[in-house]
Every structure is written in C-alpha cells, then in structure tokens.
Design a protein around this nucleic acid. Structure first.
Length: 848
RNA sequence: GCGGGCGUGGCGGAACGGUAGACGCAACGGACUUAAAAUCCGUAGGACCGAAAGGCCCAUGGGGGUUCGAGUCCCUCCGCCCGCACCA
C-alpha cells in the first residue's frame, strides 16, 4: 500500500476547494451565522509558528461550524501600515508599498499552503486606499460626533521611532516597539475621546461572558474607576487648590497638601522661587530616565504656603510639591494622611510630618493605637476626628461629603485612570489624518468628496523625522472652507486605529461606505475571536471603543464587537548555544541520545531551557520549512494536540514526527479496509465486537463534538486517537457496515483538523462528495449510552473492587453486589458496615 | 507592593467532589526483516509480600481542615509564571 503523499494530496485538495469556491461565504443565507476571526497578521514577510497555531485553531473551529450547518464567515486580511515598512524603505531603499505587497504575496501563499478555509474574496490590506480612505471618513464622522479632538498635551515622545506614543504604548517608561526611554514633549495632537465611554467600557465587561476572566480584569484595572470627593483648600496666598480623595473620612488625619510638580500652581510659584523651579526640573527628569533607579524614593519641596483645613481655618497645613503626585490623575493635588496611606506615610516619615491615626481597627483603643512602619488601610471606627468620632469609614465619608457639599465647596466624582487615546503619529507609512490647517480658518476637516487622501508614492525615507512633512508638495493644498492656501495635517493615525474596525469591514469588504450596516447587523458580533494575550488591553479596548463609535455614527447597532474571545498560548522551543556562547538555530543542530551537536562541524552545543520562540534567541522554526517536509496536516495536528490551547506549547521534533505517523496510520486504516459495503449502505443489527465498535464510534462523535464546541482541541485529539485505536484493534472479520461507519466517522471528525487527509480518505472510501461540504456526524444517543457500567466499590474510601451493573441498576441490588465482593469482605474483616453510600452509576462506599 | 494564574509519571497532559495518570511523546520487550527504517503486538508511578494469580501500603508542591469520599472545596506555607505598578 502506497504511503500517504501529503504534498500531492494537499495541493490537489487546495485546488479543488478553490475551484469549487467551497469557502466563499454568502451574506444572504438562511443558515444561522457564525463569525470566526483570528487576529490578522502584520505582513512581516513570513508566517511564523504563532500565526500557524492561531490560524489552525480558528480554521478548525470554522470548518467545524460549517459542517454543523452554520453560514461561517472566516476572512483574512493584513495589518499593513506601520514602522517596519519605513525601516525597510530607509535601509534597503525600497518603496514601502512594494515591500509590504511582496510580503503579503509571500505570506498569502504560505497561508494557502496551510489549507485554511478562508473566504479570500474578502481580503484587504489596511494600506489599501480603499480601506484607509474609508477610515478617514470614519475619522470625520467621529470628529463631527465629538469623539475626535485636537489638543495640546504633554506627550510621550519616542526618540528612536521619532513619534509620539499613546500611554498604553509606554511600557515601564519605554516605547513598546523601540524600547527607547520615552521623553516628554508638549505638542498639539489628535485624540480619540475614549473616556466618553469609560463607564460603559467598564460596565459592559461583565456581559462578556465568553471572554477570559484575566482579560476582563486587565481591562477593568486599566480603566481604573474610583469614586471619591473633589474639594478645595484655601491657601495663604489667597488662592485655592482643588484636591481629589477617595478617603475624605481621613481628613482630620491630614498633615500636608501636596501638588504635582506639573500642577499650574507649582509652575506659577516656581517663577518666583528658583529652588522650586530646580526641584520641578529634577522631578521631570526622574519621571523618565531615572524612573527605574529611584522609583520608590518620595521627595518633596515645601512651598512655604499654608492651606486651611476645610473644617478648621485655624488649622494650617504645609503645601508641598511632591514627586509622587501625578498631574494626569484626579486634580493633580492631594491632601496627605500618613496614617492611612503608604505613600503619604513614607513621605511624612522623611519630612518629619505628624502621623495621626483617625481610623481605629475594631478592638483597638484609640488612645494607644499607633502607626509604625505600615499604614492602617482597613475598616474601623473614626477617632481624633471631632464630629466624625465613632462613625464607620463609610459613614464618615458620607458625612464629610455632605458637609462640604452643603457649603458648595465639594462634589462627589468618579475618577478614571483611563485617558483619551492619543492617535497622532509623526510617521509617513500610515493613514493620513484628513484635516487641513488654514491660516485663516484654523483646523478644518477635509471634504468627504476629496477622500481618500492618498499617500504619495515618492516619499524620501532618508530624511530625519516625518517624510510626509518634508515631502516637497504633498502637504500643500487649499482650504476647503475659504479656498486659500493651506497645509495638510502631516501626522498619520496610530496603526491601532487600522485594527479597530477591520472586523467590521470584513462583513462586506467591498461596501461603498466604510461599512455596510446591513452586513454588520447580520455578522456582528464576532462569535469567536482568537489571538494572543498581548492584545488584552490595547487592541481590544480600542476595538470596543470604535464599535461604540460606529454605533453612535449610525453604522452599527451593537456595542461589543467580540462575543467570544480566546487567547492562545505561545510557541516555545529549546534554545541552543555553541562553545562561544552564541545562539544557534534548531536547523543548525542535530540531536543524538539527548545531546545536541552542530550539523556542519559536529561540535557539541549546550541545550538550554525551552523558551518562547524569538529571533534574539534563534530558537525559531519556520512553519513553511516544516510544511515542505511533513505537510500542513501534520503541523495542524501538532498545533491542536496535547497542550491545552491557552497554554504555551513546546515545539519538538519527536512530537511532530508522532503527528506524521498518525497521519499515515489514519490513511492506512482507511485504505487497508477491504470489502466495505458501498457508501450509504444501511447498517443492520450488530452485536459483539461490531456493537462495541459502533458504541466507540458514537461515543467519539459525541465527545469530539463537545470538545470542539468548547475549544478543547487537545481533548478532541485524544478522543480521535482512541477511536483510531478501536478501529485498529477491531478484528479483521468484523461487520463491514460497522467498520465503514467507524471509518467514515473518523474521517469526518478529523476533517476540521487535517482537512486534506480527510478528503483523500473520504475519496478512498468511495465518496464523490467533499468532506469540506459534508455535514458533521451525529451521535446516536442509544449507542452513546452504556448498558452496563463498571462502578468502583470502596471500603472507607479505599478501592476494594469493581462491580459490573446494568445502567441505572436499583440501589438495593448494587448494594448487595458490592457487599458480596471478596475484596470487600476481606477489608471488612468481619466488621458490620456502619453505612453504605450508593451513588447510582458511579460508586459504592462502605463505611465500616 | 497590588491583582491574577499555576504546581499530577521521564515529558506534554486526562480526570461532573466518586476506580488518579485517559490520549500522545520518549523508553523497554517481542514479532516481521539478511539488516535497518517503517509497521504490528505487548510492558510500564513507587515500595513491600507472593512462584504466580493476586494482595497491601504510599503517591497529584508541604501542612492542616470540610466530607462516606479531595488532584478537585476551605485555611496556611513554599515554589514558579503573568499582568499592573507612586492612580490619592
């Protein structure tokens, strides 16, 4: 029997699917819809293993749903704007569009070799004018709705990428892509008003039941809602300063008022106080470069001003400028209560300010309760607090709020950590912002008729800064309002904007408007979105915001774009280092007896721990190289096997070879089966081994169906192995119809996972139809149900025997059978059972 | 520091509170073969008793608890991983 030739089989079936348009998805189907989406790739040039895992999972689900009768939308596109193309343009002198397009062509071919069930007619790249032009339209829509605005702001400047970054893109004070220490600059920039939806983005998280709890929590913390009180302190210079506090109950424990170094009042005071100016300057430096080194150090500067306590004008508090107070949160000013806040305590100890406890834990004496190294942040009774004495924390907070509100000096507010999305980028390879700066009319939106505002093809990337800005003609235009000379906005949009609505465009990728509301209504929300956890905050939050914007603009009826979210684990591989300590690629290494050697010289290499595949450690394996040798099905099978999909998976040669052997084994099982009845032949009553095979078949169908429904691919794979083992173990003279049924079930069950193999086997079984167009098999409940059940019999919780009983056997007979077991009487050793617990169809436990 | 997750054979991992280790990888023994590869059959957590059949004890990071019964629930300690990090 000829071995299964994966290469021939795969190219053949890929051609058949393409020719028959098996995966083209109509927008007008009577069948229920299912939208399966994997996060679209950046066209770096090659598919990597992370893509392969991501798209294998999504494809398996898409094919499964299609077989179940859904009208499945499973599209693919390209997140094609962004810095790497500019770098390539500068370093290699190529045109960024040409570079991206050749990368896309390469990757599209690699994806097609994986045999993905994708509707390629919906493909687009975000750098297509047809896409970004419509994004410009959305930008103008959002502008009209007040969801886009321009504002001067302190921005995070990445000195390497020469662009500003959103807060979300600054990780530990460094640019998320470049790793450069971020500087601060004041610039006029475009923002999306994401905070307009702060409360809604937070509250709606509870409804996202098919999202990982972890992701919901990360978003919740990112939005960071807290309730508190804003109120004023009168100052000795006649001015006043507003503070924000979530703990107004501790007001009588206050020992200072602190301003952010960026607070307008601090800046004002610095004009006449050079020492303060120096201090502020220092704080700004440590805010970035030395953030890691001195991050814990609290430092302050006494302005000499005094603040009146709101409830006692004779009580004067020092007004400090403190480096730990952030201008971007609350009012940029606080009152410090050292006894009940860790930062305030550290600050007070350093500057020798009073530490007066005002919340006393239950059971402690207010006269003797002292704060030592730790503040007290728990519940308790108020003390040392005049009219608040004896109240609970909640009562006291309410009382303070009431009294200050009554005097018009305070208001209760909700504060968010979330800030508006700074979306301007000083980059040329991005979506141009459709705005025009007119010396007379100011900032004016471009006319919609003038969209798309296209990028020029002749950008010079050798210049410093934004090539769009230094282009000789591009930015010169006329004002849509007055017709006079004007300049285009040369900033482009953050590429996260591009990925914030692509899923909506897929619903009708050729729609005249940005999206087709009818198609949106039909397809959205995405039923299952699959991608990496690294997008838990940025991309998913922005997409949630954009969907709300689409709704407000009248395009969509929903708020939430992704009903189900799955975050897959990463791909790991062993690392190798040679004698010189240099990293070596797996392809350069061969292994013998658990040791590793360089292929060319035979020199030994040290095997390091398995780590996430990365270029820096050279522990990557290219999917395409693997597909070349073993075929796409073996890779797909590996990606789904063994490791639960949310966990990191380790790529191993031996595991992959095991997959290849399984592919061959399935092919053998099918092609070596002799004398099968024709397809569709009825199956008569069977017994004995044939009945057992039928039971195994239907149990496998039921189990695999459930596992795929819940994305437990690894368990589905195990069930399929078990079925293959049953078929392999069946006697040669078993009922042929039962054998055909088992083989057909096996082939249909592997269809979503190893689709090419399934088609070849299906054909070998005499079918002229395609697995890709076949229905999912149905389990017969009568065959899934077991007639007899082996139940465990325990004495005092220890296993002493097993008992074969009829399914649903009466408790009495089970009890009697259990007590009659030899192992039970031996364990009882003459003692009478005190109690016998019978759990039907499960277990008997005899308590002696 | 705060928040979250995880800890089961040599490895990846199974296990509605109910026979721990399904399934796979690696390993070992056997068959086929001149040989190897491939394939097929079989073995396999650990200790002890037994010629064997089998018996018996210990095992899910450590300790404690709830329960007839705990890998699973609760408390506590240890270890590892991830996220956020001066958010008032």
């Amino acid at each position: 029997m000829a071995r299964y030739n994966a290469k021939d089989s795969e190219s053949r079936w890929q051609a058949v699917w393409a020719e028959r348009r098996s995966f083209a998805t109509p927008n007008d189907s009577a069948r229920p819809k299912c939208y399966v989406l994997e996060m679209f790739p950046y066209p770096s040039g090659n598919i990597h293993m992370g893509h392969a895992r991501n798209y294998t999972m999504g494809d398996c689900l898409a094919r499964f749903r299609r077989a179940q009768g859904y009208n499945v939308l499973h599209p693919m596109g390209w997140d094609a704007f962004g810095l790497p193309a500019e770098n390539a343009a500068r370093d290699k002198g190529v045109n960024p569009r040409a570079w991206v397009e050749s990368n896309i062509a390469n990757m599209r071919a690699q994806l097609k070799l994986m045999g993905l069930a994708i509707d390629w007619s919906r493909e687009f790249a975000t750098c297509d004018p047809a896409y970004y032009g419509r994004q410009q339209k959305l930008f103008l829509d959002f502008y009209k709705l007040g969801l886009v605005y321009r504002s001067e702001a302190d921005v995070n400047w990445d000195p390497i990428d020469q662009t500003v970054l959103a807060n979300e893109q600054v990780i530990d004070g460094r640019g998320w892509r470049s790793g450069a220490v971020v500087e601060r600059r004041k610039l006029s920039q475009w923002f999306f008003r994401i905070t307009a939806f702060s409360d809604d983005l937070l509250a709606a998280l509870d409804g996202l039941e098919r999202w990982p709890e972890k992701v919901r929590l990360m978003q919740k913390n990112w939005i960071g809602r807290s309730e508190g009180l804003r109120f004023f302190f009168a100052l000795s210079n006649g001015e006043s300063v507003e503070v924000f506090s979530t703990r107004p109950d501790t007001l009588f424990g206050a020992s200072f008022v602190a301003l952010s170094p960026d607070h307008p009042l601090a800046e004002e005071l610095a004009k006449s106080d050079p020492e303060l100016a120096r201090f502020i300057e220092e704080c700004r430096r440590t805010g970035t470069a030395e953030a890691e080194i001195e991050k814990a150090e609290k430092r302050g500067y006494d302005t000499g001003l005094k603040a009146d306590h709101p409830f006692d004008p004779d009580w004067k508090l020092p007004v400090m400028v403190a480096n730990f107070v952030l201008m971007g949160y609350g009012t940029g000013a606080i009152f410090g209560c050292p006894a009940h806040d860790a930062r305030d305590l550290e600050f007070a100890r350093k500057y020798d300010l009073p530490v007066l406890p005002v919340v006393i834990p239950e059971g402690q004496d207010p006269r003797s309760f002292r704060i030592a190294d730790e503040p007290y942040v728990g519940p308790g009774r108020l003390a040392n607090s005049r009219f608040l004495d004896g109240m609970s924390v909640e009562q006291a907070q309410d009382e303070v709020a009431k009294r200050l509100e009554a005097g018009g000096r305070a208001r209760r507010t909700v504060q968010y950590r979330l800030r508006d999305w700074l979306a301007s980028r000083q980059r040329a390879w991005g979506c141009p912002i459709p705005m025009i700066h007119c010396p007379g009319c100011g900032v004016t939106p471009a006319r919609e008729a003038d969209l798309p505002i296209m990028l020029p093809d002749d950008l010079d990337f050798s210049v410093h800064g934004n090539p769009l800005d230094s282009h000789p003609t591009w930015k010169h235009t006329t004002c849509p309002s007055c017709g006079g000379k004007a300049l285009r906005e040369t900033d482009t949009l953050d590429t996260f904007v591009d990925s914030s609505w692509y899923f909506a465009r897929f619903c009708d990728a050729r729609a005249e408007g940005p999206v087709n509301p009818e198609a949106l209504d039909y397809w959205l929300p995405v039923d299952q979105y699959i991608g990496g956890i690294e997008h838990a905050i940025l991309h998913l939050l922005y997409a949630r915001f954009f969907t709300r914007g689409l709704k407000k603009a009248g395009y969509a009826k929903i708020d939430e774009p992704f009903a189900g979210l799955f975050t897959q684990g990463m791909i790991c591989h062993e690392t190798y280092r040679d004698d010189d300590g240099e990293w070596r690629e797996p392809s350069e290494v061969e292994k013998r007896d658990g040791k590793a050697f360089l292929k060319d010289t035979g020199a030994p290499v040290v095997i390091g721990p398995s780590e996430k595949m990365s270029k820096s450690k050279k522990n990557t394996v290219a999917p395409s190289a693997f597909v070349d040798v073993y075929g796409a099905d073996a890779m797909r099978w590996f990606m789904l096997s063994d490791t639960p999909p949310e966990r990191d998976i380790e790529w191993t040669e031996s595991g992959v070879e095991g997959c290849w052997r399984f592919i061959q084994r399935v092919h053998r099982l099918v092609t070596e089966a002799r004398d099968l009845p024709p397809p569709g032949a009825p199956i008569g009553p069977v017994k004995g081994a044939a009945l057992e095979l039928r039971r195994a078949t239907h149990r496998a169908i039921a189990a695999v169906t459930e596992d795929l429904d819940t994305l437990r691919f690894n368990r589905a794979v195990a069930q399929i192995y078990a079925l293959a083992n049953e078929i392999g173990g069946a006697q040669g003279d078993i009922d042929r119809a039962a054998l055909r049924e088992a083989l057909e079930a096996l082939v249909l069950l592997i269809g979503p996972m190893t689709p090419h193999l399934a088609e070849t086997c299906w054909e070998a079984l005499g079918h002229t139809t395609l697995v890709a167009e076949s229905d999912w098999p149905k389990a017969d409940p009568a065959l899934v149900r077991r007639d007899t059940i082996t139940i465990a019999v325990q004495v005092n919780g220890k296993l002493r025997g097993t008992l074969e009983v009829a399914n649903g056997a009466a408790e009495d007979s089970v009890r009697a059978g259990a007590l009659a077991l030899e192992g039970v009487s031996r364990a009882l050793d003459g003692r009478a059972p005190k109690r016998v617990i019978v759990v039907p169809n499960r277990i008997v436990n005899i308590v002696a």
